[in-house]
Design a protein around this nucleic acid. Structure first.
Lengths: 340, 340
DNA sequence: ACTGGCACTCGTTACAGTCGAGTGCCAGGA
DNA sequence: TCCTGGCACTCGACTGTAACGAGTGCCAGT
């Protein structure tokens, strides 16, 4: 039952070879390319055990072995060390993130960087509003019955929304509204705002009451309900590497999944503990992504986490490398955010 | 030399059959499925002429004919009428666009709608800043040496940018800065702003001079230089329909091109005249997109054009249908924008 | 000017045979 | 007890051949 060290070494060798060659690996090739110190026959016996335990499988009789999702899982958990970044990669990260002028810029650069470094599809979640605080709320009159509400979060995110007022509101009243909402909400965490917004309505002077009521609805929608989360994506062209052998021949389900923000958020957004998360094959909950793996982690200024980022690729991916890259990029982005 | 009516009818029949079946079409099948009133042999003679003129070609000897880019061009220009939308499609458009709360929302809904209707990749350009006017500029103090500049355009677009001031600026001065820039720039077309920004610096009171100088740089970058244009994309999964037969087997170049904003802007952004534009195969300037066609048009409130939208797909696409959809969606979006 | 007929091309499919990578198992040896 | 060399076996990949048929070009006849 227990797998001894050599069997684990064999599994590691199989994973490494298969990831790099993309071809089922046989016992003979294994002993040639790794110093296992035993003969092919011995390796074959070990392979038989590994297969019985579900860590590897044979695509056909008389073919080499291929790791199963379970095999990759064991590899990631116990058989691989995080690969240190090369100096070139380190430099690329620094160079790429220097000169970003605002949050949008940071996110776009990050996602492209990650796609380029890992040669996978990269996903970056904008700093979550739920984990941000309100820095400032601005009300810009568009017409007498329309306002543009602009919300600036401490993470640098800016959301705007048109407000249709129930009736005309003079400029002075807009000034008052602006003062009131900022006094009440500025500095507060988004998640704490609903009762405060409620209070705003109740405490508002009579003549501001209708406008404030409408405004409060939009405020709640903007601060907590509505598309709350945003996502940036890059590197979809990388899905076509490995000439359709990955993803069992069709990119369709993958591309479909990537268009659903909800899916992406579930994949990279829920990184509660700050540790890196690896989802292998059908460990994720989406049928469309059964043939894919995801490496993700949280990022944020200092120790707090404000969002997630990660990469998606075939289960046959370079886990140690990708884990290292994802972590490194997350750390750099965190530092960048901390400067604001 | 001149193509008589029957030869044109044959070409039209070939295009229609090939688009719907995706298989090279032969002379016998043609006369069976269309009322041409002549025998296969006659059609063959016509086909020979059409091939000589470069409108169709044979993938191999002993295969049917396939339209060339030139053939599609003739078809689009002279042989097809714009297909009227079905009531269901009309309803889908209306339903989809109702309830959009702001510009972001409108753009996202539009691009998804277009992708769904045409079953192609859809692209929507945000209203171009170059064609917009400044509605309001807001300066929000982040710290004593940092401002958040928020620019609101009359099209509803909102751009923000962090400003690093050369030294601390008191709150009163920020108020003055805000007043000055709005007095000078509000209501102006973006393209007219550079000299005005220059004037702002020259006319600024001495103690505001350094801050205004920095601000002016950022203003110019935000208003005219920097990512100026934004793009929304949807329906990439539609590229996988037609099982890799389109796009000569590899989606890679297409996906790569779709990640370049510059490319997309060139494809759908330059619609100067308000007429619908069709780019077939290598008529576009990008090697990566030689196997693709683009149908695009401009949109905007009323007669003015503020941006472009369109779809991209295999050269073997339903041109009349797609042209109709793109036009219809553009018109609806224009109406929606006119309401703001 | 159109049509029917005919010879020809050539990609597709089916089938048979060979090759070889890789396996499982077993008997013998450290 | 564990490892190893040997051996028979499996089965996918590849090759070559043959039959098939969709489609063509051409030509003589109406």
């Amino acid at each position: 039952m227990g797998l001894d060290d050599r069997k684990l070494a064999v599994l590691r060798a199989i994973v490494e070879d298969y990831v790099s060659t993309q071809e089922p690996v046989g016992s003979k090739a294994l002993v040639e390319r790794h110093q296992l110190g035993v003969s092919p026959a011995t390796v074959r016996n070990d392979m038989a055990v590994l297969e019985e335990e579900g860590y590897i499988r044979q695509p056909h009789t008389s073919a080499g072995r291929v790791p199963t999702d379970r095999g990759y899982r064991l590899f990631v958990d116990r058989l691989s060390r995080v690969k240190p970044l090369s100096p070139a990669e380190r430099r690329a990260i620094e160079r790429f993130l220097v000169g970003a002028v605002d949050l949008d810029d940071v996110v776009h650069r990050t996602v492209r960087l990650l796609a380029q470094l890992t040669r996978q599809v990269a996903v970056v979640q904008y700093p979550s509003l739920a984990r941000s605080s309100v820095r400032h709320l601005e009300l810009v009159p568009i017409s007498t019955t329309r306002l543009m509400l602009v919300m600036i979060a401490d993470t640098g995110r800016v959301e705007q929304r048109l407000v249709e007022l129930p009736g005309p509101v003079p400029a002075d009243d807009v000034t008052d509204l602006r003062r009131l909402v900022n006094e009440k909400l500025a500095g507060e965490r988004m998640s704490d705002t609903p009762p405060l917004v409620q209070a705003l309505v109740e405490e508002a002077p009579v003549q501001l009451r209708p406008a404030m009521t409408t405004l409060s609805t939009v405020l709640l929608e903007t601060l907590v309900e509505r598309h709350e989360e945003r996502i940036a994506l890059a590197g979809t062209a990388n899905l076509t590497r490995g000439g359709l052998l990955d993803f069992q021949g069709s990119l369709r389900p993958i591309l479909e999944a990537l268009e659903e923000e909800v899916v992406l958020l579930k994949l990279i957004g829920e990184t509660e503990p700050s540790t890196t998360r690896v989802l292998i094959g059908d460990e994720n909950e989406f049928d469309n992504l059964r043939a894919a793996s995801v490496v993700s982690t949280g990022y944020g200024p200092g120790a707090t986490i404000v969002g997630g980022l990660g990469v998606l690729g075939p289960t046959r991916m370079d886990y140690p490398g990708n884990i290292a890259m994802v972590r490194a990029v997350a750390r750099y982005v965190g530092e960048l955010l901390a400067q604001n």
